[in-house]
């Protein structure tokens, strides 16, 4: 009961209920849905969106947005191929180099321009969205570069203790992010800056540095998504990632993190991403055409946010469950 109360007090409660309902519905109606092979495919397919969305969550909690993450993802793939194929860096150092590049571009370019110069995050990340995409096309000559690496194959397709490696990666990313969010002063700073930048600055929090760190984390996680993408398709393609930012934004918002900043978190984002994964997988298992999936996904996103708004206005209420607000 306590667990239900805790869940009910969260902003992602509505989506959590929808997720469970959807899962039960597909399990009962589609016999090909609730099989271990399908659930593994469902989770593995969501892993890239998962890591990108977690990075975007921090950016949105701090009151910003990062449009450039899709381009960053593609850029990371091309960079990894360059390190690994052209320069001959071994796979593991090449991955680390790629992650560092993502953190650097996110922190130094996006973060500095937004956090130090105070430019609008929409302008800056729209600029880098285009700019990074240009670099990708120039660097790759718009050609897909095949990548043959046993380490990468392992990342995408191996199993560890009965679970696919991507699922372990998702779990690890999530737990680290949750730890940073809940159990460090940095995590608090993110909420303080997002909820009241002036009050945070007056309290002695380094606002600019916090913003830079958050965009660096988002850039690094997008680069990680780029590496996972290369691993999945066995090649670095300049075409990947051009729409992932919309899916990620939808998942983050479904999870209760708002554009206004200061509220939400990675817990909700995990549920948002899972919701999308279950919805899309379930619909395609049911044989629903993929365009219908888009229509349903879009409608549900708007409905979930509207429901959350009405609930907080008091138009509808889950008060009996919420009466005791759990200690966090």
């Amino acid at each position: 009961m306590r667990l239900v109360r805790v869940a009910a007090s969260q902003r992602f409660f509505v989506v959590l209920v929808l997720l469970v309902a959807l899962f039960v519905l597909f399990s009962l109606t589609q016999e090909r849905f609730f099989t271990s092979a399908n659930i593994e495919a469902l989770l593995t397919g969501a892993s890239i969106l998962w890591v990108v969305s977690i990075g975007l969550t921090f950016v949105m909690v701090i009151g910003g947005f990062d449009l450039s993450l899709g381009s960053m993802l593609a850029l990371a793939g091309v960079a990894f191929a360059a390190f690994y194929n052209d320069i001959g860096v071994p796979a593991l150092p090449a991955i680390l180099l790629t992650l560092a590049l993502g953190a650097l571009l996110g922190g130094v370019v996006n973060g500095m321009l937004i956090g130090r110069l105070g430019l609008s995050f929409l302008v800056v990340t729209l600029g880098t969205l285009i700019l990074f995409r240009g670099v990708v096309n120039l660097w790759s000559d718009t050609k897909t570069d095949q990548v043959l690496s046993s380490l990468l194959d392992g990342l995408a397709f191996d199993k560890l203790v009965g679970l696919p490696v991507p699922v372990w990666i998702m779990l690890a990313t999530f737990l680290v992010a949750l730890h940073v969010q809940r159990s460090t002063y940095f995590g608090r700073d993110i909420y303080a800056v997002g909820g009241g930048q002036d009050a945070a600055r007056l309290s002695g929090i380094r606002v600019g540095r916090t913003i830079i760190a958050v965009y660096a984390i988002a850039g690094m996680l997008a680069a990680f998504g780029g590496v996972l993408q290369v691993a999945r398709i066995g090649a670095a393609s300049p075409l990947v990632g051009d729409a992932i930012i919309f899916d990620a934004a939808a998942a983050v918002m479904l999870g209760g993190t708002s554009f206004a900043g200061g509220i939400g978190g990675v817990g909700g984002t995990a549920i948002g991403v899972l919701f999308f994964a279950v919805l899309q997988n379930g619909l395609s298992v049911s044989g629903v055409e993929s365009f219908w999936q888009q229509i349903i996904t879009g409608a549900i996103l708007i409905a979930a946010v509207a429901l959350d708004r009405m609930q907080r206005d008091g138009s509808i209420s889950f008060r009996r469950l919420r009466r005791t607000r759990a200690e966090t």
Binding site: Y191, G195, L202, G204, I205, G262
Partner: peptide, 26 residues
């Protein structure tokens, strides 16, 4: 606007200035 972060808890607001000099990953 300047004194408090309204969405944050009493605890987090009370400790915000006092803990600002600490290492952020603590």
């Amino acid at each position: 606007r300047m004194g408090l972060v309204l969405d944050m808890s009493v605890r987090e607001n009370l400790l915000m200035a006092q803990t600002a000099p600490l290492p952020r990953l603590r």
